[in-house]
């Protein structure tokens, strides 16, 4: 464990806290993409199948359960719970996620760390996580302006994988024969998708004023 990875996990947890607060206290899922939340639920449920046999640390196992529980709760609330479910707009949040799931599934089958079913599913979840934010970014693009809490949510989510990139660099230079090419590639793509958002987020928060984030 190193500071980058720890801060990355804390940033990821923060993103869950912000989103859960927003939809439970704010009683609204406006501006939040259910599609992205569904993809994250698939990512965590598929990646953390090894919860039952890969016990690398209590920290890991605990957070795996937390991530599966939170992502599932978020999907449940936005899909089924009133009044949140009425604030979800299927016309706006209509990114064809089958075009994300399909290619990631094929990539997981072809490019993975071993030919076992779990390794293929694991690789699939890594690739899917890299593109899971797309429906959310498209929804924000359509709306032009980003609600304050939502902007902090997306920023925390982007920072989490960005900090993981630093963690991988750190581990590469401090551990011998440390290789994680699949997550390195996917993590780079994932963080790259946030670059544009980060630029607008920084511009809007720079003056210390909480001017709303505007996406062109």
């Amino acid at each position: 464990m190193n500071i980058f990875r720890f801060l990355g996990d804390m940033s990821h947890i923060l993103s869950f806290v912000i989103l859960l607060l927003k939809i439970t206290q704010g009683k609204s899922a406006a501006g939040i993409s259910l599609r992205t939340q569904e993809l994250y639920m698939i990512v965590f449920c598929s990646r953390y199948l090894d919860l039952f046999w890969n016990f690398s640390s209590l920290y890991n196992s605990f957070l795996k359960v937390v991530f599966i529980a939170c992502s599932s709760a978020i999907v449940y609330i936005i899909r089924f719970k009133s009044p949140q479910k009425d604030t979800w707009n299927p016309e706006l949040d209509n990114f064809p996620i089958q075009y994300l799931i399909g290619p990631c599934a094929v990539a997981g089958l072809l490019i993975n760390q071993d030919w076992t079913p779990f390794e293929m599913i694991w690789a699939f979840s890594i690739y899917l996580e890299a593109v899971a934010i797309l429906p959310q970014l498209f929804l924000l693009q359509k709306q032009g302006e980003v609600e304050n809490l939502t902007s902090h949510y997306v920023a925390a989510l982007g920072a989490y994988r960005g900090l993981y990139l630093m963690n991988w660099v750190y581990r590469y230079f401090t551990e011998d024969d440390y290789l994680q090419r699949i997550v390195w590639f996917a993590g780079t793509v994932q963080t790259g998708l946030y670059i544009d958002f980060f630029y607008h987020y920084y511009q809007s928060k720079r003056g210390g004023l909480s001017r709303p984030v505007k996406l062109p």
Binding site: S57, I111, N112, W115, W122, N167, Q180
Partner: peptide, 10 residues
């Protein structure tokens, strides 16, 4: 395929 490091990360 690519026997990378064991999965010790989230």
């Amino acid at each position: 395929l690519m026997a990378d490091a064991p999965k010790d990360e989230l």
